[in-house]
């Protein structure tokens, strides 16, 4: 039996990797990809808790998270496609029509 802490560590590690992408990358596609990584990281946590305690809730939450991640990806990609078609830009720091 693998110690449970390993799963928590893996979750936090992956979450931080995703967070780095969200905070520092300016390519919108990679930004969205990083969100997916964050979501995935958390799925491991829920699934492992379920596995160790014989509780179904965690699995079910993972199921919902997959659906939610798909929804968010859909929204994000819609906006990115529109942005590209309208402005030919995909870098987060190139779109700044607002001042201040």
């Amino acid at each position: 039996m693998i110690p449970f802490e390993y799963y928590v560590l893996l979750t936090l590690l992956l979450f931080c990797i995703g967070l780095i992408g969200v905070l520092f990358r300016r390519n919108l596609i990679i930004l969205l990809v990083s969100f997916e990584i964050m979501m995935n990281a958390l799925m491991i946590l829920f699934a492992s808790i379920s596995h160790y305690t014989k509780d179904v809730q965690g699995y079910i939450i993972v199921f919902f998270l997959i659906a939610l991640a798909a929804a968010e990806a859909g929204v994000g990609l819609t906006l990115v496609v529109l942005l590209y078609r309208k402005l030919r830009k995909v870098y987060a720091d190139e779109i700044n029509y607002f001042r201040g």
Binding site: A47, H51, F63, I66, A69
Partner: peptide, 21 residues
């Protein structure tokens, strides 16, 4: 990750993961 989910006891989630993601 799908394999990890499988080792965590849920073949269903592994499949969903591969299919959806």
């Amino acid at each position: 990750q799908a394999f990890l989910l499988y080792t965590l006891g849920s073949e269903f989630l592994a499949a969903v993961q591969i299919i959806v993601y």
